[in-house]
């Protein structure tokens, strides 16, 4: 009885040691890949921040209104730092996937390769979204200033609508690029866009006729304002 018990124990122990001996190199490889990935990501982050600072990106983003938008979204860091962080996490994320591959588990086989294949689409979608975001901010600011100068009462609302319209358009374009539910995105965007236009037309024509009158009157009043004998230059 005692011999049988000790045989089972030794066999179990040997089995565990054998398995550990089999997995340990993979675990070590995984840790090494994570550490190397972290180091490479950190160096890439530092280089990226330095390059973008040399290119005066932070000042340019402030000029384009991106810094203010980031700040409004709760991101208080400089754009060069944000891009540096993005680079860091992208590289580190790829390193993590590679490290999981190193374990050679059947469930994760081909995971890293699949994600890396998907990366170009992800980068393009991110670029599309970023350009859309910049454009949305620029256009919203231009519309806001023009509407306030025209003394339109709901200027922020109009500027906000323009901003969201451009953002939704950019978002739909980015999702289409990623191939995520392409048909559904196109259909939803089409319905939403047409619906918004129809709703605005109805709202402005029926519910907002007073606002329409106010805007038209303010324009006519402005033309009458020439009677002020006010010359600026």
């Amino acid at each position: 009885m005692r011999d049988a018990w000790s045989d089972v124990l030794v066999a179990s122990f040997r089995d565990v040691v054998e398995r550990l001996a089999h997995v340990a190199p993979r675990l070590l490889a995984m840790v090494a890949v994570i550490l190397i990935g972290w180091a490479v990501a950190a160096i890439a982050r530092r280089l990226t921040v330095r390059i973008f600072r040399m290119a005066d990106l932070d000042a340019r983003c402030a000029r384009w209104g991106l810094t203010a938008s980031l700040s409004r979204s709760g991101i208080g860091q400089a754009p060069s730092h944000v891009i540096g962080q993005l680079v860091f996490w992208t590289i580190f994320f790829v390193a993590l996937l590679t490290s999981v591959e190193a374990l050679e588990m059947p469930a994760t086989a081909g995971l890293a390769a699949g994600v890396v294949r998907f990366l170009p689409n992800l980068v393009i979608a991110a670029l599309v979204w970023m350009v859309g975001w910049l454009l949305a901010n620029f256009m919203a600011q231009a519309v806001l200033i023009a509407a306030v100068n025209a003394q339109v009462a709901l200027a922020p609302l109009i500027a906000g609508a323009v901003r969201w319209l451009v953002l939704i358009f950019a978002g739909a374009a980015a999702l289409t690029q990623l191939g995520i539910a392409r048909e559904m995105v196109l259909l939803t965007f089409g319905i939403a866009f047409a619906g918004t236009v129809l709703a605005l037309a109805l709202a402005f024509g029926l519910g907002g006729k007073d606002l329409a009158r106010e805007i038209l009157e303010s324009r006519i009043r402005k033309r009458d304002g020439d009677d002020d004998h006010l010359t600026h230059v």
Binding site: I145, V148, Q151, A153, A155, P156, G225, D228, H229, L230
Partner: peptide, 27 residues
């Protein structure tokens, strides 16, 4: 001054700017 000047319209424009253009003026 020969003609009429509508000061209230200009003051309204200023107040509207103060209300709605603050995010721009802050910069």
């Amino acid at each position: 001054e020969a003609g009429e000047i509508h000061l209230e319209r200009m003051v309204r424009a200023f107040k509207l700017g103060l209300k709605d253009l603050l995010p721009v003026w802050e910069q």
